[in-house]
């Protein structure tokens, strides 16, 4: 949660110096809960993504965290990995294969694509269920590597579904949403809606309560999906 304190050291002593160091930071985002805004890092993905050569990863569940930990140990180069605090819902079965730099379609759909990372992957799946009941077919992509982002997959999803929603437990600026929008701008531009914390600091409360309050829970992802669909049809 206080990993931003070391941003200058990460920049100079690790990335600039070409060190093969791995930073693993727990207690990210609103997931921290009642400790409050002072402890909720909602800027880390953006900050670390801006450091040249830094690989940035945010796994979705315990299974993927284990797989990602193994992967970064074998990977050569500086890595920032954001893990969780509160118990995370399992998204993947044991044996899940993790590859740095690759996104994964975990549920197929035709009308739009929800690209999520971290705790938002499980919420994106819930949102897809809600949308299905309304006759909307949503594809869900787990984008565990925020940098380097999987441009090919993003372009393919934009091409095939024509609308994108991003979801992250992070500021809407500079994190997954920013990375996806940058990739789309240079490949297959399409309507995008961003689900994340809207450029404010967090607050005390239970994680699920905060997800509703700051509008990053499943119903808000579903709402964003409907907004993006409306823009797609225009």
């Amino acid at each position: 949660m206080f990993c931003l304190r070391a941003i200058e050291q990460a920049r100079l002593s690790i990335a600039y110096s070409g060190r093969n160091a791995k930073i693993v930071a727990s207690h990210p985002g609103l997931d921290v809960g009642p400790d409050g805004g002072s402890a909720q890092a909602l800027e880390d993905l953006a900050a670390f993504r801006a450091i040249p050569g830094m690989t940035v990863i945010s796994p979705a569940d315990p299974t993927e965290t284990v797989a990602a930990t193994r992967a970064i140990l074998e990977f050569k180069g500086p890595v920032y990995m954001r893990t969780g605090r509160s118990p995370a819902r399992r998204v993947f079965e044991p044996g899940h294969v993790f590859e740095i730099g690759k996104g994964e379609i975990i549920r197929d759909g035709e009308d739009l694509t929800i690209i999520a990372c971290g705790v938002e992957v499980a919420r994106a799946c819930d949102a897809a269920d809600m949308l299905q009941q309304e006759g909307i077919s949503a594809r869900v992509v787990n984008m565990a590597t925020i940098k380097p982002i999987d441009r090919d997959l993003i372009a393919r999803c934009a091409h095939e579904t024509g609308a994108i929603v991003t979801a992250e437990d992070h500021n809407i600026y500079g994190g997954l949403g920013g990375a996806v929008a940058e990739a789309l701008a240079q490949t297959v531009p399409c309507p995008v809606e961003f689900v994340g914390v809207k450029d404010v600091f967090g607050a005390s409360g239970e994680p699920e309560e905060l997800a509703d309050h700051f509008e990053i829970s499943a119903p808000f992802i579903a709402e964003a999906a409907k907004r993006v669909l409306a823009r797609k049809r225009q």
């Binding site: 009642p34 400790d35 409050g36 805004g37 002072s38 402890a39 607050a203 005390s204 409360g205 239970e206 309560e209 905060l210 309050h213």
Partner: peptide, 22 residues
């Protein structure tokens, strides 16, 4: 520590006028 309360988990200068700094 409740949602919407000025009594945040850690003191917040913008929530309570007598707190000097967060």
């Amino acid at each position: 520590r409740k949602l919407g309360s000025p009594f945040q988990g850690h003191p917040h200068v913008l929530e309570l006028p007598w707190v000097e700094t967060s």
